[in-house]
């Protein structure tokens, strides 16, 4: 009970600055708890930065932001050793990556070289600069944002690198009601610079992560998961099916989702809730399918029954 309550308060706190996006906030938290990294793909001005900033506040994490540009180099992120003339040594000046929550803004605007430096750090939880391996802080959480691929001047992330992100979210336009509230709040004193309160302490975060490991996934649920995965590999509307890594990610997220709802076991709803965010960017529709990745996931959800095989 207390985890769900904790999360509800955190979501409500973030919801103060990002109106009407409760589902996305919950998914983002789920991603963080599951030790994954988050990719947000949306048009400029949809609240990507606001979300990441709010998350850092609510979790009390140190926060840094890197704006990715086409001339950004790996050293600009990881850090660099500089010769210190006074004691004739090299001193390492850590880059912005040494933080708990890193916002990598517009990651697809930079060169693949810089992209891969970041992605490597994300995967390993450590960076190697000039032969010396340095551990990144824990928790280490990257929120990368990217513009939709069809916008010009971008280096799209290849599928193999998309796979490194546990979830991909799109925020979408706000609900008219939420947007109206946003308009009304605009210009009220104190809303601009308000810092959100920390709602989840570090030990609570560790507690949640611990609880995830103990969540029971029954045979029936694993059957359902396998049927879903098999469907992506067999149905003609997919060009590329789900990898084992994708399947594991799905299970991890479902477990976390169960914990977030105070359950000691995973139910199919958990899987279905995280399914679009976890698999949509890992699947490639074949030429036959008219819709996008999201429509594909919805169809897959309809076609694979929970109970019957």
């Amino acid at each position: 009970m207390q985890i769900q309550g904790l999360i509800d308060t955190a979501v409500a706190e973030v919801g103060q600055v990002l109106l009407g996006k409760e589902a996305q906030i919950r998914l983002a938290l789920c991603c963080l708890f599951a030790r994954g990294h988050l990719l947000i793909e949306d048009l400029p001005g949809m609240g990507k930065t606001t979300l990441s900033h709010a998350l850092a506040d609510v979790l009390g994490l140190s926060y840094k932001r890197v704006q990715f540009t086409s001339d950004l180099l790996p050293a600009d992120i990881l850090g660099v050793s500089i010769y210190n003339r006074s004691d004739a040594t090299f001193t390492f000046h850590p880059g912005p990556i040494f933080t708990q929550l890193l916002l990598a803004d517009e990651i697809n605007r930079t060169t693949p070289r810089t992209q891969s430096a970041l992605l490597e750090a994300m995967a390993e939880g450590q960076v190697t600069v000039e032969g010396e391996t340095r551990t990144l802080p824990d928790p280490f959480f990257v929120i990368a944002t990217q513009n939709p691929i069809h916008q010009s001047g971008t280096y799209p992330l290849p599928e193999s690198q998309l796979d490194r992100f546990l979830m991909r979210l799109d925020l979408g336009y706000p609900h008219p009601k939420a947007e109206r509230e946003m308009f009304e709040r605009q210009g009220l004193p104190g809303t601009e610079t308000r810092r959100l309160e920390q709602r989840i302490r570090e030990d609570q975060l560790a507690q949640i992560r611990e609880a995830v490991a103990g969540v029971h996934a029954s045979d029936s649920l694993l059957d359902y998961l396998q049927r879903l995965v098999a469907y992506t590999r067999e149905a003609p509307e997919f060009a590329v099916g789900l990898s084992p890594r994708g399947a594991l990610a799905l299970l991890d997220c479902a477990r976390t989702w169960a914990v977030m709802h105070n359950r000691g076991h995973v139910v199919p709803e958990d899987l279905q809730m995280v399914l679009p965010a976890v698999v949509a960017h890992r699947l490639v529709p074949s030429g036959d399918f008219a819709g996008d990745g999201m429509a594909l996931v919805m169809q897959m959800q309809r076609r694979v029954d929970v109970i019957r095989s």
Binding site: V267, P268, Q272, R302, R303, V304, D305, V306
Partner: peptide, 9 residues
Amino acid sequence: RAPGEPPGA
């Protein structure tokens, strides 16, 4: 029950 609808929902 819709196709693919889980018991809880």
